[in-house]
Structure formats: structure tokens, C-alpha cells
């Protein structure tokens, strides 16, 4: 008994240390900085001040928050809609390793370079416009870049691997015989997917949704580089407040919003996972009594 409790600490120690150093301490510093007075040239003065939170209550800021939410929700929805069939196809394919490799390959290139590649594709004399002109689909160049559409497109591209991977692993562990059974019992192809497949991979769907939404919500470079004059997101405000306007407390208060949103997302993910485990145990028990 004694021995096992000591082992517990040994096992949990590294993880606990890791979380304390890289998560709790920085979080504590951010919370602390958000309630201090701003230093004239950056940094903070050690005097209590709620100025940062008063500055948050501001219609201009609410607009950016609303825009960030709209962009994040839209981009996450599109990403999921594309990632689900991808994950399904990969799980059913006999070339899984190849497809996994292909999903991961883009990470070998720096993300900034990939964003600049998108600029080359979307700009008015870029590949997309030239191709459409060659095919005589358009006469004049379309404005494909420096607007919300470009921001969402590039965000979807950047974060789709984060959605595909968890979906793939859950779909891969799904027992496809259940689909056949559903068909045998008279379910249509569509019903068998919505009533049998989707409920069984719910935790994977939630995980990939959270994994996509959180980084998109804090995105900074994509709106900066491919966005237009109306593409400012929360991430951009944080950077500006730290560097240009030297208001670290405000930047801290804003990043706490991102932390809050992420925490809610992760809690939801964990709760959904736990619930699924409970349900599975229940149905197993039921099956056992029969």
C-alpha cells in the first residue's frame, strides 16, 4: 500500500512539474499582470489597477471579439466538414500510413512560408486568378485576398491536420461491422451513418473541433498577412498592446479571454469523453444481462 502511493507520486511528478512550470506559473503571471498598473514603457508597476478590465468594456473591442468568434466558428465548421470524410476515407483505406504521412508533411514547412504561398495563390495576378483566366471562366481578376474569405480559407488549410488526426484515430477504432448490421436491420446508408457511426465517434468529433477552434481563436499571423483592413482579430490586439501601445495589463486581460474560451472547450471535450465511457459501460452491462 505504502509502496504504491509513493509510486503514484513518481508517476505523476514529471507531469505535475511540467504543468506547474509551463502552464500554472505563466497563467498566474498573466492574471497578476492584468490587475496591475501599466508601466510607461512596457511592463507593469506594482500597484493594483482595474484599468485593463475597464478598457475591455468598449464597443470597438466587442466588435473585434464578435468578429473573432464568427471567423473561428465558420472556419472550424468548414474544417470539420472537410476533415470528417477525410478521416473516414483514411480509416477505410489500405494505405493508411501513406495518407497519415501526407497529412503531416505540410508541418515540415514553416507556417509563415505556407501563408506566403497562399498569398502567391490568391493575389490578383496569382495562380488561382491566372488559372481561371486561362480557362476563360473570368475576364477580370477576382479579389480573392485581403478579405475575410481569404482569412477563413487559409485558417482552414492551416488547421485541418489537427482535425483529421483525432477523427482518423477514433474512426479507425470504430467497428465497421456495426454499419453492416445497421444496413441488415433496414437502415438506409445515410441513417446508418448518422445514427450509428456519428454517435460512436462523438468524442473524436469534439476533440478535433476543440483542437481546431482554440488555435484559430487565437490566430495572429493569418489575419495579419492575408486579411484586409477589416480582419483584425483578438490575437492582433494582444500583440499590438504588448509592442506598440505598451499596455501589458490590457494584453494580459485579453489573453485571459482566450484562456477562458480554451478552458471551456477542453472541459467540454473531457466531459464528453467521460460521458461516452459511462454510456459504453452501461450498454456493455445491458448486453451482458441479455
Amino acid at each position: 500500500m505504502k509502496r504504491s502511493s509513493r509510486l503514484g507520486i513518481t508517476y505523476a511528478g514529471p507531469m505535475g512539474l511540467w504543468l506547474t512550470i509551463f502552464f500554472l506559473t505563466p497563467l498566474f503571471i498573466i492574471i497578476l499582470y492584468s490587475v496591475l498598473k501599466k508601466g510607461l514603457y512596457g511592463g507593469v508597476e506594482w500597484t493594483f489597477s482595474s484599468a485593463a478590465y475597464r478598457q475591455l468594456v468598449n464597443p470597438a473591442f466587442a466588435k473585434v471579439l464578435f468578429r473573432t468568434l464568427t471567423v473561428s466558428v465558420t472556419a472550424t465548421a468548414i474544417t470539420m466538414a472537410l476533415a470528417l470524410p477525410c478521416g473516414y476515407a483514411m480509416a477505410r483505406s489500405s494505405h493508411q500510413s501513406l495518407f497519415l504521412g501526407l497529412v503531416i508533411v505540410p508541418f515540415w514547412t514553416n507556417s509563415l512560408i505556407r501563408i506566403y504561398a497562399w498569398i502567391a495563390i490568391l493575389s490578383s495576378r496569382g495562380f488561382a486568378n491566372e488559372l481561371l483566366k486561362q480557362l476563360h471562366i473570368i475576364e477580370e481578376s477576382l479579389s480573392l485576398i485581403y478579405n475575410q474569405g481569404a482569412v477563413i480559407t487559409v485558417l482552414v488549410y492551416m488547421y485541418i491536420p489537427f482535425a483529421i488526426l483525432p477523427l482518423f484515430t477514433t474512426i479507425d477504432s470504430f467497428d465497421f461491422q456495426l454499419l453492416e448490421a445497421a444496413r441488415d436491420l433496414g437502415a438506409s446508408r445515410f441513417t446508418s451513418i448518422t445514427r450509428v457511426l456519428l454517435p460512436n465517434i462523438r468524442s473524436g468529433i469534439i476533440t478535433s473541433g476543440v483542437f481546431t477552434f482554440i488555435p484559430i481563436f487565437g490566430a495572429y499571423t493569418v489575419p495579419l498577412l492575408v486579411g484586409g483592413k477589416d480582419s483584425y482579430m483578438i490575437g492582433n490586439i494582444i500583440v499590438d498592446q504588448v509592442t506598440k501601445t505598451r499596455n501589458w495589463p490590457l494584453a494580459s486581460a485579453i489573453s485571459l479571454i482566450i484562456t477562458l474560451v480554451s478552458t471551456v472547450g477542453v472541459m467540454w471535450m473531457l466531459m464528453a469523453g467521460a460521458q461516452e465511457k459511462r454510456e459504453r459501460a452501461q450498454s456493455l452491462r445491458k448486453a451482458g444481462t441479455r
Binding site: N58, A60, F61, K63, V64, R67, D230, Y232, I237, D240, T245, N247
Partner: peptide, 12 residues
């Protein structure tokens, strides 16, 4: 400056 710049930069 920052307050005015916000109306330029944050709005649509």
C-alpha cells in the same frame, strides 16, 4: 492616440 487608432483599426 491609441483610443482613436482603435476606431480606425478595430472597426469594419
Amino acid at each position: 492616440y491609441d483610443e482613436l487608432w482603435q476606431t480606425i483599426r478595430y472597426d469594419d
